[in-house]
Design a protein around this nucleic acid. Structure first.
Length: 213
DNA sequence: AAAATGATCAAG
DNA sequence: TTGATCATTTTA
């Protein structure tokens, strides 16, 4: 497994239009080398956060804070923050300096290091998981951070080098990309309807749509 | 349907 | 300094 040549995606990839990068990220691998193991998840769902004019974005109205400062840097860096006091969200910053846009990773398909993921999520081996546990391993932004070992210590990390990077997939699978509104941004007024969520049609690791109360 | 849980942010 | 909020998940 350490012999596989995974091609790391370079910074140019992230400097493009954020919606284009969002679609281009579907099918790419997130690779985390940790404790001598390699954990890989294939990106199947993302959301774009479009900066100053997007009421759902942390950088709306060019607001700067200690938390969102990394969004104002160049593309290809990790923006990781704590949400609801207990889960992390992993974003990839895009575009040049002072264009504070980023892409939230909402779902990944487990590819490698399944036992590592199962251990981090459920303290079990992968083959001990029930079918629902397998499906719930990485089908949400907080869940995938646990499974991939991503936390606040990786905020601001340069994603063009190990131990955490994005790589081209070794397979050549084509994904039909669907578009929808973003999830759980009810506070965002007119931005709630913007079609900035992208996902691989039919993939079981796309996060489940929330049922209305 | 509702709890869990704490950093963050804007108001005072 | 304080209180409300929150790009979620789990449990019931």
């Amino acid at each position: 497994m350490w012999g596989d040549n995974l091609k790391i995606i370079n910074r140019d990839f992230y400097m493009d239009d954020t919606l284009a990068v969002s679609k281009n990220l579907i099918g790419k691998n997130i690779v985390h080398e940790i404790n001598g193991n390699r954990i890989i998840g294939k990106i199947v769902e993302v959301e774009a956060y479009m900066g100053p004019y997007d009421k759902a974005a942390h950088s709306y109205n060019n607001k700067v804070s200690d938390r969102n400062r990394i969004m104002y840097g160049p593309g290809g860096f990790a923006y990781v923050y704590l949400i609801y006091g207990m889960y992390y969200c992993f974003n990839i910053v895009t575009k040049e300096e002072n264009k504070p846009e980023a892409i939230l990773i909402r779902g990944v398909e487990p590819i490698e290091g399944l036992d590592e993921m199962a251990k981090r999520r459920y303290s079990l081996r992968y083959d001990e998981l029930t079918k629902p546990q397998k499906r719930n391993l990485t089908n949400g932004p907080g869940k995938l951070c646990i499974a991939l070992g991503i936390d606040r210590s990786l905020n601001g990390y340069d994603l063009t080098k190990p131990p955490l990077y994005i790589a081209d997939p070794s397979d050549d699978i084509h994904y039909s990309i669907k578009t929808s509104k973003r999830i759980n941004i009810d506070y965002a007024e007119e931005a709630v309807d913007y079609p900035w969520r992208f996902y691989a049609e039919g993939n079981p690791y796309v996060s489940p749509v929330k049922v209305k109360d």
